[in-house]
Every structure is written in structure tokens, then in C-alpha cells.
Design a protein around this nucleic acid. Sequence first.
RNA 1: GGCAGGGUGGCUCAGUGGUACGGCGGAGGACUGCAAAUCCUUUAUUCGCGAGUUCGAUUCUCGCCCCUGCCUCCA
Length: 461
Amino acid sequence: MSLHVYNTLNRRKEMFEPLQPNKVGMYVCGVTVYDYCHIGHGRVMVVFDVINRWLVQLGYDVNYVRNFTDVDDKIIKRALERGIEINQLTDEMIAAFHEDIGSLGCAIPNYEPRATAHMPDMVEMIAELVKKEHAYVAPSGDVLYAVRSFDGYGKLSGKNIDDLESGSRVDVDDSKRDPLDFVLWKMAKPGEPAWDSPWGEGRPGWHIECSAMSCSHLGASFDIHGGGMDLKFPHHENEIAQACAANGGDFARYWLHNGFVNINAEKMSKSLDNFFTIREVTKNYHPEILRMFILGTHYRSALDFSDSALDVAKAGLDRLYETKKRITHLGIKAQGSVPTAELSAEFCAAMNDDFNTPEALAALFDVNRALNKALNEDADITELLAQFDAMLSSLGLVQHDADSWFQSGDVDVSRIEALITERNEAKKARDFARADGIRNELIADGILLEDSPSGTTWKKV
RNA sequence: GGCAGGGUGGCUCAGUGGUACGGCGGAGGACUGCAAAUCCUUUAUUCGCGAGUUCGAUUCUCGCCCCUGCCUCCA
């Protein structure tokens, strides 16, 4: 079965066919860098990391682009509050972003453009829109996009302009020809960061940067554009209006949107102030647990965040690491990568069906069980191990050393090892009272000893 | 008000026109000096409620109830 993806544009699953055979251009909306990433951001990054991995697994040459919004009102405000330069803030947050997202096991995209590095592209696109009369200069001096000048406006989000206005919460602004018109170029107030433009010193509106950066890296028409569900309207709608009107291309052909992360059945967001940052959560839970948690639910569904959900994710991940640990201790290594044709049919079908990671995980656990069974029976595991490995790397899971997975934290390793040696001697002498005494002593410290034919190991519990 | 998505066992999460995947948890067993891990067996006559279509619906249609989201910055 070939890859099918749910395309928000047409509200159905479609067979995925890239513009150029074997090549995929994918743009994902990144973050505005004024604060640390929360779990919701983490979800987007993990989801599209897995999508990227799968496209690569399918043999596509993927050009993955993810931007940083490093000019914006919130950034200006935050820098002012902290009394630091804007660049200092954005550099700091970009570094933190890389740390956080990297800890989640996400590969770095091919390009990570910053808005401030693409001013000429934006100015050029705005000029084109003005020239084609899709944009106009308002009395305030701001350049606005005229939504009614673009026929397809509302197609992505399934809205029409008149409906939007009837029940609208859109601010009425006299300088706008239509309340839904949005800013392309914003005139700078004194003290604000500003760039030159034919309309005076100012800065770009939020939406134009993604149109300009995606087209500049991927062309006027490209394959995939992704992001969180909340960006569907107005951000992505506006991106389409800008890019299509300016370039005349298709812009993105497949629009992929991931669902929200919820807290107590409510959307996690900055505005509701009910968010957890990645670094907060990973203080208590290994980041890979967060990744497992994210992949346990289909990317388009809502994901309910709670400690108990993370505990469940951890339990599942532990199970996979147990297998890896057994294999590691037996000194067996996987032989290279597995071509897609040889990957488990169930796993492939799941991933090809709009990246159904929960179902893919079910296939993974089936292989996990088969592998342990084979190990118990001392059978040949070459094939199973290759499958196991390929699935894990497709999902970006179990990427750490198995022993350190179970042994992380503050522990006195030499003391544990000494006690293991002492206990082994006691066992040899059939002094089980002493042996159990040692084990209980360690259990009190959160250290669990496990005997196996290949020796005694320990882990933190 | 408009539009969109959802309600599946103790929890979680898939899925399908022919009585339901996986994980966690529970129970029993094998293995073990005992454990742990692993494996095996078991744990929903049932998929929000009502009606319809059908030989047959959790899956399709209609109505209802409830939840969430978008319509303003937001991943």
C-alpha cells in the first residue's frame, strides 16, 4: 500500500504523490522564539520528525524546512521586560529550542530559516502583492492584504468570508477595507526594530514570513506544509492567499495539521496559561518518554497530558528497553538497515495510512514479543532484530543505551557492584538469607537486582 | 450563531459492514533457591443514546445527549 495522507485542504485522505518523483519538499511552521517550548510545540516537532523519517524510509529525498519567527510583537515586549536586546533573546531561545527538541530525538531539518534573514524575500513578495492589487497601503501606513481580492480565501479552513464576519470577534478597524484584511508590513514605532522597505521603515506581519521563506527554499509550489491545528486559520489561510496571489503557483499541495495537547480536557496554550514546558516535564521524565507519549496517539487526535499518561508511556518504553537490554547483554548486534520492502507489512501499512503511529506501535510490540520468545527459545533472531531496529529508528524510539536507560540517576555504582559480587558469593554458598538480605538492602535504595543466565544486572526503580 | 473533530473494557489508544489492535493495570500458569524480567493463558456478548438501511452496524443514514476545538495571538 502506498502512502496516504489526510489533506486538510480537501478534508480527506489522499494518495501522496510528490511534484517530482522521489523528492519531497516539506515546510513546517516552527516557533516564535520568545519563550521556552511547551509540550504542544514538542508534539509538532515530534510528529513531523516521524513524518520526515518515514518519508526518508520510503526512499524520498526530503527537503525539510522549519522556520523561526524571530521578529514579532511578543519578542519585542519580552526583550523589553527582560531589559535585553532582541537578538540576545532570540539567540537564547533558539539555543534552548535546539536543546529541547534535540532531547526529544528530533533530527534537525535541512534548513531552519530565521525571518530576519529573509527580509528581502518578504519585501519582494509584498511588492508583488501591491502591484497585483492584492494589497494596499492603509491610512496608517501599514500594508494590508485585501482578502476579498483572493478567490480561494477560506478554502483551507472551510470558511467563507461572510460567515466569518457575521459572528466575528474580529476587531473593526476603519483603516481596513475588510475587517479580515491582515497586515503584511507594519510601520515601526519609535524604538522598535525596523527594516527598510518601499513603504517606509517597519517589520513584516506574521503571515508573510512563512509564505516568503517556504517559497524561497522550496519554490512556488511544493509538497507538504504542516503545523499545529491552530494555525489552520488564519495563519495558513493567509499564507495561501499571499503565496498564491503573489506567485501564481499551487503553494503547498498537502496540508497536514496535528491536534492539540490538552490538559484536563482543555487545550494547552500560552493564552490559557496552562502549559508545561518541555524542560519542566523532562526534569521528572526522560524526554524519550515524552516522545513515546506523543506517538501513542494519532497525530490528528487530541492528546491528553497528565503524569499518569506519562507513566503509561514509560511502562511501554521500559518494555522495549528490556528487550534491547537482553540483546545487548547477549552481545548481538543488528545488521544494518532494513529496506522498506522487507519491513513488517503491518508496520508499513500503519505508517502509510496517514502516519498511524499507535497502530505502528502495536506492530512494534508484536515484534517485541516475538523477539523475546525467540530469545527464550534460543532461536535465530537475525530477521526479527532487523525488523525491531528498523521500526524503532522509524519512530525514533529506544535510541539510548539500554543499561543507562535503567541506571540513570544518582547511584553509587561501585557500591552496587561490590554488593552484587558479595551476593553472588553468598548464592554460590547457598546462603540465600544473606543473598536476599543484600537484595532487600538495595531495594530500599531503589535498586533492583535481576539474575539472569548471563549474570546479575541492576536497575533503578 | 457558523464550521470542524470526538464519545470504544479499570485506565489508555487503534480499528472495521460480519461481535473489536496494542500498551498499562488485574488474575492464573511456566521459568527462578526466591525475586525481577520474559513467555503462555485470561480480563468488553460490547463500541454515548434512540431509530433506520442491511442477512448482519461499533463501523453507513437520521435524530438526540455530552465533550473539545476553530471563528482573535497561539504548535
